[in-house]
Amino acid sequence: MNELFAVFLGMVLINNFILVRFLGLCPFFGVSKQLNSAISMGVAVTFVMAVSSLATWLIRHYILIPLDIEYMNIVIFILVIATLVQIIELFIKKTNLGLYFSFGIYLPLITTNCAVLGITLINTNQDYSLSGSLVAALGGGLGFTLVLAMMSGIREKLEMANTPKSMKGLPIAFITAALLGLAFVGFSGII
């Protein structure tokens, strides 16, 4: 139990997906202009990460390893993720139309988000158990959402700020991310 908690905390705060592992940067800079869309994106990514971790763990342990075709990891994982995203999209569209529209374009884009393929590869490399994979995925997703939400709050204020003309937009967002990352170093002592 303690070990799972350490994995979770490490994923959220210490090895944060965005600030330390550099996974999922495209939505980080693309979507983080408004708080609402940042949180929707974060929740959608977390959900897909958890479901994909579950599915890829089962496929790896019951199909790939018995058949000794682990080198097919990458192709299989990306197909699983793409299929899952499609299924989730159809499911949400049928059951909850409001949620479907609030996710909008973000849901199909998740297929090419490196955070999702990243977590399945991290689970494989670390050889986490089924519960470990799930906890790692939820922790990673939560850390991703947290930083995305913080960044969107900062960027809403930055729009009003008097930044030099050549630093407006992306450059100042990068600098802000660097400072945010430095602030997160403070957490590294807690495990």
């Binding site: 600030l19 550099f22 630093m167 992306l170 450059p171 100042i172 967002a173 990068f174 600098i175 991310a177 660097a178 400072l179 990352g181 430095l182 170093v185």
Partner: peptide, 8 residues
């Protein structure tokens, strides 16, 4: 963090 700083 240095990576963000340099690219920015």
């Amino acid at each position: 963090y240095g990576a963000f700083l340099v690219i920015g």
